[in-house]
Design a protein around this nucleic acid. Structure first.
Lengths: 330, 330
DNA sequence: CGGATTTTTGAAAGCGCTTTCAGATAGCCA
DNA sequence: TGGCTATCTGAAAGCGCTTTCAAAAATCCG
């Protein structure tokens, strides 16, 4: 098809290619002729041929645990933003919190052809890195930090610790945790660990009946808190893995006649859209999704283009204090 | 690289290709040898070469107004589900409710190489269809119906009408609308039209001060309702373009001392996760996102593979009645 | 104005697969 | 076992670009 353009413009395909790729060294009149011809014909280069020839796919893959999860979507969106600017396409895939599936999806992307890959978290299928290494493309890990591999993320343990310390500073001693499923999820695990450590540092511990693991969502939060109440003395404060879980827990608390924050302080994670509008407005740990996505995108593009990069980027999470937390009742 | 496998297996690349693509007619022992060799070498076919050779990209594009919008994400997710089953990759792009941007993104996908394209809604840049036609790939329109082009969607006007009729059956006479921005958005427009028609059918009209257009989100909903109250006699019921808007309106109503549904009935759109958990639980129009995505995916795959399809698929939206609607106060 | 440079240009060689087509093998039956 | 099919297999021709390399054209300079 570049043939057609070449014929119409009275030049060779080599010149067509040069013009369309903006390389210098084409006389102005020929350049104009090519552009005209391409326009007239509505020429659209064949991406596969170009990719085959240049050995560049102009595409970057991303494998996230759940495309429907707000936190990941926000990061993907800002990630894509940066890719597009550099002329790259984002191809996103769903791993569904399962290492086998993640491996399968990543392999699929590798086969399809991508120039770089974004992954979430630290825990992967044992074969994943070998396979990526073999393909020779750069990778960036997001949402959690790593010493071994390039990453853009935050210290999940530290930010959860901060939340726990904040609650303890308010005077809470019985603190509970409702997290999403932690199997194959280093972020969730790290958060709980951070909380456990913070508690330990002040001589407290996370009671097993206050350590609840449920599936994500508002319904999960309700179930989780119900479960927690079933286990003896209730906590005076809880830290939830997401704002949805926190929302569910607050609903359940209200149903049980517990006032938030009077009888129960609640902290969420992610600062979802609705968090400031809950009743009471939810204290939560805000992840700077846009910055993570931008940094990850910039990093990957730079690596693909062979520019120097930093391997470790920490984007601090932030505790947003609203009205769902208060000192415990006397 | 298929070279390497061929050499190692002691066959030609033709046979390697045959084995790896599952085509019949390869003797069992050679087949096994090829599979072994491929495995040993960790062979991953070059997608570009394959695409160039087969003239198939094994990718499908989708351009949605906003990747961060729950309704679109859910459809994309189920759409992708079907594509993956058929071995296709989804490449999604953001149009941001702007026709120029949509055109640009669609063109980008076309260049990159996709075998099919999913679009949202009926209103597009005048050049879009010409460009798609030239590329010769099948397209499917989602979220709204069309007589001209293959589509999978629902009748936005009819479902909004249904909501209005339901409110009128409850006895409401002053009904307001808070919609998202309607510029270049046929769905929003159709919904308002549906409501206007339903009202007209019963001799009512939508007062201009009760027809509010705001940007999406909870904050938008609050602002919208505040604006509506500023315009004279308040409505006894409102229909909102999304559940987020409805949520915002409910918050604003409560702030103003209006009880829901006592003083104000509220209906949302989309049946978001949180809708059943609001206080009171939100009556809303549920869009069967998963079915839309599946149907759109199946349709496109069938077209790509040259199988017969139906051109018009209506997936009915459904009014989910919860507690945010009631007869108006006397 | 002729020769030395510099700038442009096109022919042709890939890129790594798939697929056709004809030849090689294997299988079958008399 | 020979002759004839039915199966398999590999050589080679693309797929539609990019890019190298050498030749052609334009420009420069003494």
């Amino acid at each position: 098809m570049a043939q057609d353009v070449a014929r119409r413009a009275g030049v060779s395909t080599a010149t067509v290619s040069r013009v369309l790729n903006g390389s210098a060294g084409v006389r102005a009149d020929k350049r104009a002729a090519v552009i005209r011809a391409a326009q007239d014909l509505g020429f659209v280069a064949n991406g596969a041929a170009r990719a085959l020839s240049t050995r560049r796919f102009m595409a970057v893959g991303a494998v996230v645990p759940n495309i429907e999860n707000e936190a990941f979507v926000r990061v993907l969106s800002s990630f894509q933003d940066r890719l597009r600017r550099a002329g790259y396409t984002l191809v996103a895939a769903n791993a569904g919190y399962d290492l086998e599936d993640e491996l399968r999806e990543a392999t699929f992307l590798l086969e399809r052809g991508v120039d770089g890959l974004m992954l979430v978290g630290d825990i992967h299928h044992p074969d994943l890195h070998a396979r990526i290494a073999r393909s020779g493309i750069p990778t960036v890990q997001t949402f959690s930090l790593s010493r071994e591999r390039p990453c853009v993320g935050f210290d999940n343990a530290a930010s959860a610790s901060r939340a726990a310390n904040y609650l303890m500073d308010l005077g809470h001693r019985r603190i509970g945790v409702i997290s999403g499923l932690r199997k194959d999820n280093d972020r969730g695990g790290a958060r709980v660990n951070g909380i456990v450590q913070a508690l330990a540092a002040r001589g407290l511990r996370l009671a097993p009946e206050h350590d609840i693991e449920i599936s994500y969502g508002i319904g999960g939060g309700r179930d989780g808190f119900r479960q927690m109440l079933a286990g003896g003395e209730p906590p005076t404060a809880i830290i939830c893995g997401t704002d949805q879980i926190a929302f569910g827990a607050m609903i359940e608390a209200r149903t049980r006649g517990l006032a938030v924050p009077g009888d129960l302080s609640v902290i969420g994670h992610n600062d979802s859209d609705f968090a400031p509008f809950l009743d009471p407005p939810l204290t939560t740990i805000r992840i700077h999704s846009a910055e993570i996505g931008h940094a990850a995108g910039d990093h990957l593009i730079a690596r693909i283009q062979g520019r120097p990069t930093v391997q470790f980027t920490e984007i601090d999470a932030e505790l947003i204090v609203r009205a769902s937390t208060a000192p415990p009742a006397r």
